[in-house]
Design a protein around this nucleic acid. Structure first.
Lengths: 204, 204
DNA sequence: GCAATTTTCGGTCGATCGACCGATTTATCA
DNA sequence: TGATAAATCGGTCGATCGACCGAAAATTGC
């Protein structure tokens, strides 16, 4: 019954890191508690002791990873000295970084797991909703500074940008980029569009 | 011998339809050969007889569904009487239709399965690559008729549009739309942008 | 009508899964 | 130090998985 919070940093954190590693390598379908325990070098029963269940481990993993990213996000969107185009470029840098670290794979796997598991869906959805809200804020700033967003509302721009990034991740994981589809290049090009709009509005 | 002659449907087709149904309801993680066989009303061993393995069933399922969609796609992109904005609207209609029929769920589940399974990835990737190539053609047409695509190449536009649609599907499956993120509404709004560009170019 | 082939069927195998248990060790604090 | 709780450990349970088998039935070709 005892379900302590991560007090002894060692084992529970080791398990989360191991779960991340296994999820990167084998995906959600190939993720077994035994694999995670083996990767962590601890007995199987430790998973249920620390996280209660396999699902508990996954939810804890997502919050663990998301916590690592929150500071980064706040730093990006809180820095008012950056132009919107510079913020966009930075977001693209983050995507490259997250692909390299394997976080994208984990996020997409958990997202897919959410399609079947309402509890997982809630956690992932809330996180992505948070990101989209941040994007909407930037879009509202762009609306003010650049003079409108064409036919789009700020919320619609945020939904589109969020979809484009998530879809790009999916395409990348499928290997489309290596097959000639310029996924990330196209995302970065969008920064040029913002730059054009910014130079127009500054000349006004 | 009063056997129902009307229900002489091929067993393999029955199995594919059953697999589609199970995949819609339980996702890839919850897809077992026994569930499929039960949903189809045939013995388990029929799956391995007709498709060799579980993976063989999945690959056949994707090609089965994709074949149903190919005619529709060709009809959309082959109809030169439609304006680009009308083509966009129709694509949005198709998305609604595919969400309703459950095809989106199946496609996304198979796509996710491809992240771990190279053979599944190849089939899904080739199909999506085909769609993106079609979009690129439309983008080239837009480039000619509307006078350029801003900083984007046709291939980049295709990559962005493809990502946006796939990402929208993922967001929809997560339930983000019901939480106030205007996913499909934003996609449709993009048609307005095309209409603006078309009216400008016609006035030229 | 008969032989060859295709298809259907029930049953079972070995492997793996998540979960759980009791016993043992380690850490915490009076 | 001794008592109490937290944490670790090996082992095992029932369930489910994909795959496979040989026999039976249906279909096809001659």
């Amino acid at each position: 019954m005892a379900r302590p919070a991560a007090k002894k940093l060692e084992t529970s954190t080791t398990l989360l890191e191991a779960a991340k590693k296994v999820l990167r390598q084998s995906g959600y379908a190939g993720l077994s508690t035994r694999d995670v325990a083996a990767a962590a070098g601890v007995p199987l029963s430790q998973i249920h002791y620390h996280f209660g269940s396999k699902q508990g481990l996954l939810l804890a993993l997502f919050e663990y990873l998301n916590g690592q990213l929150l500071d980064r996000q706040d730093a990006l969107y809180g820095d008012k000295s950056l132009s919107i185009a510079e913020q966009w470029d930075k977001a693209c840098d983050y995507l490259d970084e997250d692909i390299g670290s394997g976080y994208v794979r984990v996020l997409q796997e958990l997202s897919a797991a959410g399609w079947s598991d309402p509890e997982v869906a809630k956690v992932v959805r809330d996180a992505i909703k948070g990101w989209i809200d941040l994007i909407a804020e930037v879009a509202r700033r762009a609306e003010r500074e650049l003079g409108g967003l064409g036919p789009f509302s700020a919320e619609e721009v945020a939904a589109l940008v969020g979809s484009a990034f998530i879809g790009s991740e999916s395409h990348y994981l499928l290997g489309l980029e290596r097959r000639g589809v310029p996924v990330r290049q196209a995302l970065r090009r969008f920064g040029d569009l913002i730059r054009i709009a910014e130079s127009k509005s500054s000349k006004r």
